[in-house]
Computed example of a mutant assay.
Amino acid sequence: MAFTAQELNTKIQLQSMTTTRGPDGEIVTAWSTYAEAFAKVEPLLGREFIAAAEAQSEIAAKVTMRWRDGVNARHRVLVDGEAFEIVSAQNIRTRNRELLLYVKRLE
């Protein structure tokens, strides 16, 4: 599943949940961007959508990007300002060159 640099034409943000204490001592959680990258974002269609839906419901798209260590299902992806939960992060061919994320839309 090699890709060309031209296919990585969508700028995405990778975010993680941060927890801090507010001025009154309460715990405040928020999403913060820890990286930006260019990726190939494709909606799942037809058989691929049906196959993915068997494993995880509501998977909306797959995001292919250059390898980045540490990306996992506790993070989320912003695509054009829209948030997606990472359902699965896969190291393609375990070569640390490409990362495939299956994501679902957050409501």
Rank of each mutant, 00 (worst) to 15 (best):
T4M: 04
T4S: 08
T4L: 08
A5S: 10
Q6E: 15
I12G: 00
I12D: 01
L14C: 08
Q15K: 15
Q15D: 14
M17Y: 10
M17T: 12
T18R: 11
T19Q: 12
T20W: 14
T20E: 15
R21Q: 12
G22D: 10
P23H: 01
E26M: 13
T29C: 08
S32C: 06
T33Q: 07
Y34K: 04
Y34C: 06
Y34W: 12
A35H: 15
E36D: 15
E36T: 11
A37V: 02
A37S: 15
A37E: 15
F38E: 15
F38I: 07
A39F: 10
K40R: 15
K40P: 00
K40E: 14
K40T: 12
V41N: 00
V41I: 14
E42Y: 09
E42C: 05
P43M: 14
L44C: 06
L45F: 10
G46W: 07
R47H: 07
E48L: 10
E48W: 03
I50Y: 07
A52G: 02
E54H: 07
Q56Y: 10
Q56A: 10
E58Q: 07
E58W: 09
I59F: 07
A60V: 11
A61H: 03
K62D: 01
K62S: 01
V63T: 02
V63G: 00
T64G: 05
T64V: 11
T64N: 03
R66Y: 07
W67H: 06
R68D: 09
R68M: 15
A73M: 08
A73T: 13
R74E: 14
L78C: 08
L78T: 08
V79W: 09
E82G: 02
E82D: 11
A83W: 02
A83Y: 02
A83L: 04
E85Y: 04
E85S: 05
V87T: 06
V87P: 00
A89F: 06
A89G: 02
Q90M: 12
Q90T: 08
N91C: 04
N91Y: 03
I92E: 03
I92A: 03
R93H: 07
T94H: 03
N96P: 02
N96C: 05
L100S: 02
V103Y: 01
K104T: 11
R105K: 10
R105S: 13
L106A: 14
